[in-house]
Design a protein around this nucleic acid. Sequence first.
DNA 1: CTTTTCCTGTGT
DNA 2: ACACAGGAAAAG
Length: 664
Amino acid sequence: MAHDSIQLPCGGDGACMRCKVTPPTEETLTCSICAAPWHVGCLASKPETLASTLQWHCPDCSGDPLLPPSVATDGSSSELFVAIKAIEADESLTEKEKARKRQELVSGRVEEDGGNGKGESSVLDVLDESLNCSFCMQLPDRPVTTPCGHNFCLKCFQKWIGQGKRTCAKCRSTVPPKMASQPRINSTLVSVIRMAKLSKSNAAAGPLKVFHFIHNQDRPDKAFTTERAQKSGKANAASGKIFVTVPPDHFGPITAENDPDRNQGVLVGECWEDRLECRQWGAHLPHVAGIAGQSNYGAQSVALSGGYDDDEDHGEWFLYTGSGGRDLSGNKRTNKEQSFDQKFEKMNEALRVSCKKGYPVRVLLFLLMCRSHKEKRSSYAPEKGVRYDGVYRIEKCWRKVGIQGFKVCRYLFVRCDNEPAPWTSDEHGDRPRPLPAISELKKATDIFERKESPSWDFDEEGSRWKWKKAPPPSKKPANVADLEEGKRTRKAIRHSRKLSTRERLLKEFGCLICQQVMSLPVTTPCAHNFCKSCFEAAFTGKTAIRERNKGGRTLRSQKNILNCPSCPTDISDFLQDLQVNRELMDVIESLKQKSEENEEPAEEEPMNGLEESTDLGSSDEKTGKKTENVDPKDDLENALPNSEEERTSKRRKVDTAQVGDDDL
DNA sequence: CTTTTCCTGTGT
DNA sequence: ACACAGGAAAAG
């Protein structure tokens, strides 16, 4: 992207990046498109009139404005200019309303909540002050964080990148290629924003809808029949107790009635370490196969890897490729080579039945255990493990010629869950939405669309998705609860929460290392948040450059791989130039201040698991490890520093470090 | 019953 | 990057 001038805007600290001076407000000019502040004195050409000042767009935006999706690439960008100018010129609107209208224009979506500024200083306002996406001026939707510490909506960011921009819209730092191509959603921000919204809409916000990893202890040794399986623990032993009481051919969400263990069901956003633990919660039973189903009955769930060549993930809808077509004779489970056409049979037919009937299909999203991170990955995929994303309907399916030249079955999944998706800060679940236009349909064959009315559909009256027709009768025995295991029942402790919204929000801002509310937060490109000091401490003594010795010879020094403390992503580049997420820091500071003002002594509720301890209660007798509400024995197990989970993650870290990987 | 198939997961 | 164990459910 060739900039025709070297003009620069004001950086995150408000200082002009060109003259390094913080200009007074009257010398600051705000771009009407990207809302970045610029120093008038350092601009080659400044607007002449008041009117043109209001409509001014910065050198970065003037060449190539953001396009609303409706006019995607047909070149009618001037429409947007006209519309934005009209909004800016409308004296009857407040700045906030103008911002919202701009947002609607650019994002193509309409906010339902009329942004009623009722004067009450809500936590939402605190977030609003610091966190707004500088494109749309709203709290970021599907927030992504640049390595330079600025937060945007995923879609705004992608539009910006789509125009060939490779600099941060706020500070003009270079956006690394990986961030540009695979921005990660910052799930801490997602939960915080959603929580703040919920606290405003209904003061008595229900159970905390933030999820953490679930770990299972009930993995009987008898599962590991062979010596090797016993040694490796997980590689092949799809066993362990199934905790929920649904039959294996159960369709739709798993509800509290079928969860005697926790009495809460499988919630959207829950994560498991791997496919086997996911299986234990009944969300997706096959431990290898991607599709759970029966060809004459329907498919109950699919596992979607966030990094498949053909798959396309847009969050609320995605395209899925069927199974089969590969020669797996012998022991070749890994054969990626397709050698014949896929047909609508077996599992692919099961999916087609679910499409025909309009059944809800559970969707599990995960990343393959890939140790080189060269593959493309979906922005929506979890950083590690398997995540339950809710139920989707298959609206149509077809066949097309796949990348490898053989035909593959394709499915259009559209989300239809009553709970919001893990990546959105919306407070509510899905509403019926128009089907996206699928370009590959033009070349598709065997197109199949549902004719009959769907079994699972939106009920306008109740404003919820529900079974409009009776769900198909189960043909398999339900997994019955093991009565003698009753002692393990957890007391479903979730209502014992008297923390204020502010305190709950602060809790969410816990550093993934020290578990305390972050000071000087940094956000990695893989969207994990830490205190700057904890983060740096995690890498003391490790350098980014490493000598590579092989057989006595010294090879050229090679870039070392430094992994994120929370996931296997290599973040050595990020470490080179560590930037504090100032926007996040401002939010934390404001929340802390106001919490102190309100001096309501925080009730010392010993957090019964699920939550990290924070510095709020300043009690640190917990290990800080995420534990579940389990019996004391399990608790002890979890508190042991050398738990299975930790050992595996360490092992993995070593593994990745050995892989020479020079990305891009 | 046996055979086939599955977007694992780990060790080298 | 490569090899591969040997589970579970569908399908025959």
